[in-house]
């Protein structure tokens, strides 16, 4: 609960701050808070991935971008009424949607009664690995993880094409 409160404050601060360096640092804090929240929600694997990838790599990439572009944000936004209205309406619709959802950590929720018991019961026998997340990630959903690698490769090629072009142009 406390962590969720901290997250809410951090998000507000990101909206109000104009110094981009502070914004990026706050984003790092936000990612770390998310990672701590994942530990309290029993998602340890996700927590360390978020800490490394979200707080580490993303923040680093954003800092690199700041070094190459502008450090401060310029003009203050002129019209905020319509965006605020859109956001409030969307949020209200989503809150209305949550009313049909099962309560938080309810053992009789469909998530815990439908497919999950099968994985919890059969993984030991079928894969022989105590960590269920790893078993699902690398074995049951192995092709999915392979597809994920394709996505990273594509993004990597994209970044190289976008940024490598300039260096060749400079040599000429």
């Amino acid at each position: 609960m406390l962590l969720l409160g901290f997250l809410a404050i951090t998000a507000l601060a990101v909206i109000h701050l104009r110094d981009l360096f502070a914004v990026v640092m706050l984003f790092g804090i936000y990612s770390f808070l998310t990672a701590s929240l994942f530990v309290t929600l029993d998602a340890v694997d996700v927590a360390f991935t978020e800490a490394v990838v979200g707080a580490g790599i993303s923040t680093f990439l954003m800092l690199c971008t700041l070094a190459l572009t502008a450090r401060r944000e310029k003009a203050k936004p002129a019209r905020t009424l319509i965006p605020l209205l859109v956001v409030v309406i969307t949020g209200a619709t989503l809150v209305y949607g949550t009313l049909d959802m099962p309560d938080f950590s309810d053992p009789s929720a469909p998530v815990h009664t439908h497919v999950t018991p099968r994985y919890i019961e059969a993984t030991e026998r079928e894969i022989g690995m105590p960590n269920l997340v790893t078993a699902v990630l690398a074995s049951y959903r192995g092709y999915d993880t392979l597809g994920e690698l394709t996505v990273i490769l594509t993004a990597g090629i994209g970044v190289l094409v976008l940024l490598g072009y300039r260096k060749r142009g400079e040599k000429r």
Binding site: V53, V111, T116, E148, V151, I152, L162
Partner: peptide, 28 residues
């Protein structure tokens, strides 16, 4: 706790950082 959302989100985090990297390259 159900491992299935965890797996889904592990994949999503990594894909998310890939898109962020591409977006930042575009910004540069």
């Amino acid at each position: 706790s159900s491992p299935l959302p965890h797996v889904l989100i592990l994949t999503a985090i990594v894909v998310g950082v890939a898109t962020t990297a591409l977006a930042l390259a575009l910004v540069v």
